[in-house]
Design a protein around this nucleic acid. Structure first.
Lengths: 232, 232
DNA sequence: CATACAAAAAGTGCATACATAATTCAATTA
DNA sequence: TAATTGAATTATGTATGCACTTTTTGTATG
């Protein structure tokens, strides 16, 4: 309409509610709020310096996203992921990754391939030096890049959302080196399929890759899950 | 308000916000609120007989679900689906269906198979009599049953959510008989794969089935989309 | 000492009130 | 008459208040 000649930065004025969603999401993903933990409206309104209204709106949105669980008349708790849910979510993640891989292959440019190769190389380095944190960071980046290349924004968004829920297990998981080795092997095969631009094969590998990860996670997460529940 | 002496049904006391989400979802899916249409808080609070607070909470949730679009300082509108989004969503739906088919095949009991056969038969009948509405109803039921059999609640929920968004195009689509014939052929192949309990094949067919549907829809939806935008 | 009960405290759910941004519409001017 | 401006209206965004539910705590009782 009218004066759409936005001066310097009038854009930043997002709604309070939106910033809260992002802030809360980060707090949950970063583990400042742990799965199963009660979400006190009073504490959080003070922390963010807002009133209850936008905070509660934010909680509804996060609940729809699956990061928060609302209990009638008893407020909200950070969603706690169960073993069943893990078993459910990983196959879905696998299907989405497979699709992303297929789409990415179909649009894969030389520059894209180079970018993935670089990331893969850095992952290998971190693996050989046993640097698990950095490895995982680059790993996430690799998969994210694959989705970016796929060029399906809705798919990326679903992936991000699912990953957020699944990362709730990260407090419970202690990946062993044997599994790590297998993951690295998988990534070799992923790169190979990418090099050949074989979307079908890539899809199969990615799906299988995720299935293995699922088996790995759910095997280890059972006991700590219940332990956390008891945490005051 | 007042006398909440719910003797017989004490369980039903869900939060007001929850009921609103359901009500609004129905209104959108049923087309009482059309894509692109402005959502007036005043009108809806009067319609549902609630205050703005729970209604606004409900809108945040629906926005997270993708059925509503929030415009800062300008309220909410029913999400309008674009051609790009359709092209993005159908492959995702295809991937989810493929996964569901695979999982369902692995758990398929004789009773399940019988149930699907019955539904398939009814679909064929409706097709031969040219009853498109009933055909689609049973068709939805068929696919829903497939997801039920798959036994992955998270997958079903994602399917339901995606379908909600995709159904926003239903005001725009006018499926032709040729396409319908192809869909029916696909369903024959789907039943065949189910009979053989061949999950791999079923996955491929379902995925392809959805891809065809996507091509069908997006071809016809372009013009009416913009037309609707102008609707007062 | 454990249990049961009741009153108080705290917390949630919803409604209302206030502040601010967007829209409308009439009056003024070119 | 068309365009523009600015007050008035309307709507949204946030804060606060009230009613009701849940939880806690203190007290009495077995």
């Amino acid at each position: 309409m009218a004066a759409s000649e936005l001066k310097s930065a009038p854009l930043t004025r997002r709604s309070l509610h939106d910033e809260l969603v992002e802030g809360m999401r980060d707090m949950i993903i970063d583990g400042k709020l742990k799965p199963g933990e009660k979400i006190s409206e009073r504490v959080l309104t003070e922390h963010f310096g807002v009133s209850r209204t936008p905070l509660r709106e934010c909680l509804k949105a996060l609940a729809a996203e699956g990061l928060v669980q609302l209990v009638p008349n008893r407020g909200a708790v950070v969603a706690r992921i169960t073993e069943e849910e893990i078993d459910e979510l990983f196959p879905i993640l696998g299907a989405l990754e497979a699709l992303a891989g297929e789409l990415a292959c179909a649009r894969l440019g030389d520059a894209d391939l180079q970018r993935l190769r670089t990331l893969h190389g850095r992952m290998l380095d971190h693996f050989h030096y046993g640097e698990e944190g950095p490895y995982r960071r680059i790993n996430r980046q690799f998969h994210q890049t694959l989705f970016d290349i796929a060029g399906n924004a809705s798919l990326s968004e679903m992936y991000r959302q699912l990953l957020g829920r699944i990362h709730l297990v990260r407090f419970l998981v202690d990946k062993r080196e044997t599994d790590w080795q297998k993951a690295v092997d998988d990534h070799e095969r992923i790169m190979d399929a990418l090099d050949r631009r074989d979307g079908q094969r890539l899809a199969v590998i990615l799906k299988q890759h995720l299935t293995e990860t699922a088996a790995d996670v759910s095997r280890q997460s059972l006991a700590p899950t219940t332990a956390l529940a008891a945490t005051k």
